[in-house]
Structure formats: structure tokens, C-alpha cells
């Protein structure tokens, strides 16, 4: 206990230095543009909430917030469902072609993604999903998700087979064994997957921008933040305010989800 206290005392200043740029961003959201560039100080005489007013009105944060939530929630659902399913069979079963599939996914990590915006854009157009939130959602959920699949596969591979046998004796089929026996045990990986996919969907910029060209109302928050960036001048304090609004959900999500997976895992792992 004493050791933990000492550790905390050491960690607090380290963490504060670590997140200083973040704190600075929040403080920048309360300054004028010129004050932003006056240096690393955090405090000014006047706290300017007008940046938030501007962020809310000009960056249309209210409307974009909803879009971001929609795109993020559904892309997380799609991605987590798809990856947990493939992770489950890759981790627990042997079948013809499994190694090929794993090899292809592993290679996907390294093959260049450099210039994919044009094909993805064409694809969404051909699917008739341009200018709809579903198009953005699907594009955000798409991809190889190698990390998440590996995490799921690794996790499921370690679970004991007895669970499956017992469920089978009770008459459960393949689908039910997955959905009600194994998947609930995978909470830690699900939490990780949700955080990773959430970050990606919430922060992505270019894809939602180009996919909503014809429907500005469908833009996401990340696109809205960059609305403060201009040809000759960027409204940094407005951008900082919009960023702060946009980042709070992620930080809260992380704070609560990580606690959840940390505390609930140990029991599930024992069996």
C-alpha cells in the first residue's frame, strides 16, 4: 500500500508533463489566436468561451456530433461483430485454407495503403452509398482489422474446450456456443476493439470528407475541426475548442471502458 502511494506520487508529475500538450490545447481553446502563439503558458486574464460558441455555431458541432456518433456506433458494431466472428473460428478451429487466410491478413499489415482513397471512393460510389451516413459508416468499418482479429484469435485460442463440450451436451449449436458461451468471455478484447475502432472512426478525416462532398450536413466532427484551418490563416483557438469538444467522448469512453475490462477480466480468465 505504501509502495503504491509512493508510486502514485512519482507518477502524478510524470503524467502531468506527459499530457501537457493536451492541457495546453484546452487552455488554447480559451484564448485568442494571438494568445495561443504567446507561448506555453496556460492562463490568460480573460477566459474566452466565445471560441466554444464559434465552434458550436460555425463548425456546426451540434449536427456533426450526431453524425460522428452514428458513424462511430455503427462502424464499431459492424467491425467488432465481423472481427470477433473471424477471430473465433481462426482461434478455435482448424479447417482447410486457414493458414492462407492468416497469411493474407498478416501480409496486409505491410502492404502499402498509400494511395487507396481513389479506389475506396469509387467503390462507395458504385455501391450507391455516396452522400449517405451508411457509406461513411461502411467505409470506416471496412479494412483488414488485423490487430483486432489477432487479439480475438489469440484470446479465443486460450479458452478451454470444456466450455464448448458442456454447452454441446446441453444441446447448443455453433452459433449459440459462440454468442452465449465464448463471446461474453471476450470482454477485454471487445473493449480493446471498441476503443481502437472508436478512435479510428471518430478521428478519421479524409474519408468522411470526400464521401460527404455532396451532403455537407453529413460531415463528421473530425471534418468540422479542420473547417477552422484555412488557406492563409487557421483559427487555432476555435480549432482547439472544437477539438476539446470532440475529444471528451473518447477520453471518457477510454476511462470507463478500460476500468471495466481491467476489473472484470481476471475472473473470466481463470477456468
Amino acid at each position: 500500500m505504501v509502495r503504491a502511494t509512493i508510486l502514485s506520487v512519482v507518477l502524478v508529475p510524470i503524467c502531468l508533463v506527459w499530457i501537457y500538450p493536451f492541457i495546453w490545447m484546452v487552455s488554447a481553446s480559451l484564448k485568442t489566436n494571438a494568445e495561443v502563439f504567446s507561448g506555453l503558458g496556460l492562463f490568460t486574464d480573460v477566459v474566452r468561451l466565445d471560441n466554444y460558441v464559434r465552434a458550436w455555431n460555425e463548425a456546426n458541432v451540434g449536427r456533426y456530433f450526431f453524425n460522428s456518433v452514428f458513424v462511430t456506433v455503427f462502424s464499431v458494431l459492424i467491425a467488432v461483430t465481423a472481427t470477433s466472428m473471424i477471430g473465433y473460428v481462426l482461434g478455435r478451429y482448424r479447417f482447410r485454407g486457414k493458414k492462407v487466410i492468416i497469411g493474407i491478413f498478416a501480409a496486409a499489415i505491410f502492404l502499402p495503403e498509400g494511395y487507396t482513397i481513389i479506389p475506396v471512393f469509387d467503390l462507395i460510389s458504385k455501391l450507391g452509398l455516396t452522400g449517405s451516413l451508411w457509406g461513411v459508416t461502411l467505409a470506416e468499418a471496412g479494412g483488414a482489422h488485423v490487430v483486432i482479429i489477432l487479439l480475438f484469435a489469440g484470446f479465443f485460442a486460450q479458452l478451454p474446450g470444456e466450455l464448448e463440450e458442456a454447452a454441446r451436451i446441453d444441446g447448443a449449436g455453433f452459433l449459440r456456443i459462440f454468442a452465449s458461451v465464448y463471446l461474453p468471455l471476450a470482454k477485454p478484447v471487445i473493449a480493446t476493439a471498441v476503443i481502437l475502432q472508436f478512435m479510428h472512426s471518430w478521428n478519421d478525416f479524409l474519408l468522411p470528407l470526400v464521401l460527404t462532398l455532396s451532403q455537407p450536413d453529413l460531415r463528421t466532427l473530425a471534418v468540422g475541426i479542420y473547417a477552422f484551418k484555412g488557406e492563409h490563416l487557421t483559427d487555432w483557438s476555435g480549432m482547439a475548442a472544437a477539438s476539446t469538444i470532440a475529444l471528451l467522448p473518447i477520453i471518457l469512453l477510454f476511462f470507463f471502458l478500460q476500468r471495466y475490462f481491467v476489473e472484470s477480466v481476471a475472473g473470466a480468465m481463470k477456468g
Binding site: 466472428m85 473471424i86 473460428v89 487466410i101 493474407i104
Partner: peptide, 23 residues
């Protein structure tokens, strides 16, 4: 097994492998 891989494979094929091949 194959059915369970399908959604992820479709997502990967459309948004990772197709663009990759195009590049």
C-alpha cells in the same frame, strides 16, 4: 467456419485488398 469468416473477409476484400490491388 467459412460463414463466420465471411463478414470480415468481405470488409477486408473491399476496403483493404481491392484498393491495394488498384495501387
Amino acid at each position: 467456419c467459412y460463414a463466420f469468416m465471411l463478414p470480415a473477409l468481405v470488409l477486408a476484400a473491399l476496403f483493404t485488398f481491392y484498393p491495394m490491388v488498384m495501387s
